[in-house]
């Protein structure tokens, strides 16, 4: 009622204030500098003959590049999936009352978060050398071996890259999942327990779905890092996007053009992720806010409106 009186013009209500806004020359100067700089960079990129855009165009859909894009995608998706599985298991182990499980998961995170990814990838690749005659023994530790598969057949470069990226990701992801799990109030588990649910059901139906809200934003981040970090697999000669690009320019020296091609593809892949992330966040955010269900478009425009 009161609000209506204030917003509706009435006999007793004064006119809206019309004041002269404060002048902010600093803003104009800053904007001008940014505009001039980006215009000149853009002009250089677009018009400089050295860039040779037609070469970029020619390689954009080259079959080797496309092969690299697909390899990057499946390596990243597979490694991310492995990382998520390891991360969830590790986080749950970390929160379990069993001290052995707890310290094991702590060690795993400590070790794989604390050493460089490049070292880990190379390590998985080189691990074949540790086994005499390229034989791995799978069986009871210190007991009789059950299988003797050929290590080179198992640890292909793909598997080495997958393990390197996935196991490393698991260590980071465990902490993300753990923070998600502990963000869910204990009353939720108690309410579920009082309904007769067991620990696994409580985790799966009550805790994890709510933890998702906290877990998802950093997951998008991790996925983007994964896409880019997968280029490290080129060091063990896994033929992903960066490897394919550089093997082309090592022959013809169109280095800049191929790097541009690669960058465009990486950007394209990450853009797809943004959309996926938005819709996942909306799904798992349900029930946490009174106003929701904006499409990506609406959000983009409302964001613009708010900053203006």
């Amino acid at each position: 009622m009161e609000e209506n009186e204030l917003t509706q013009p009435g006999p007793g209500r004064p006119d809206d204030i019309r004041a002269v806004p404060v002048r902010r020359p600093g803003r104009w100067i800053a904007a001008a500098i940014v505009l001039i700089c980006s215009a000149s960079v853009l002009r250089f990129i677009v018009t400089d003959p050295a860039i040779k855009w037609h070469i970029v165009g020619r390689y954009m859909f080259d079959s080797r590049i496309l092969h690299g894009v697909i390899a990057t995608l499946y390596l990243s998706v597979a490694a991310m999936a492995l990382g998520i599985v390891l991360g969830v298991i590790t986080a749950i182990m970390r929160l379990s009352p069993n001290p052995i499980l707890k310290s094991f998961s702590w060690l795993y995170v400590f070790f794989f978060r604390g050493t460089p990814l490049l070292v880990q990838i190379t390590f998985w690749y080189a691990i074949t050398a540790l086994f005499p005659n390229n034989i791995i023994s799978i069986g009871i530790p210190f007991g009789p071996a059950l299988f003797h598969p050929d290590a080179n057949a198992i640890i292909t470069v793909f598997v080495a890259a997958l393990l390197g990226l996935g196991v490393n990701e698991g260590a980071y992801y465990a902490e993300i999942v753990r923070s998600g799990i502990i963000s869910v109030p204990e009353g939720q588990s108690e309410a579920a327990a009082s309904l007769g649910m067991g620990r696994i059901k409580i985790m799966r139906l009550i805790v994890l779905p709510q933890a998702m809200r906290v877990i998802l934003p950093p997951t998008g981040n991790e996925f983007i890092s994964m896409l880019k970090n997968s280029s490290l697999a080129s060091t063990i000669a896994f033929a992903e996007l960066y490897f394919e690009g550089s093997s082309i320019y090592s022959v013809n020296y169109d280095t800049i053009q191929l790097l541009i091609v690669e960058s465009i593809w990486y950007l394209a892949m990450t853009s797809v992720l943004y959309v996926g992330q938005y819709y996942l966040e909306r799904k798992f955010g349900q029930g946490f806010s009174r106003s929701q269900r904006a499409t990506l478009r609406e959000r983009w425009f409302s964001m613009g409106a708010r900053t203006r």
Binding site: P185, Q188, A191, S194, Q210
Partner: peptide
Amino acid sequence: QQIGMVFQQFNLFPH
């Protein structure tokens, strides 16, 4: 399962 419990803070599942 056979004992219902109602909490001060409701503890409904928000999702």
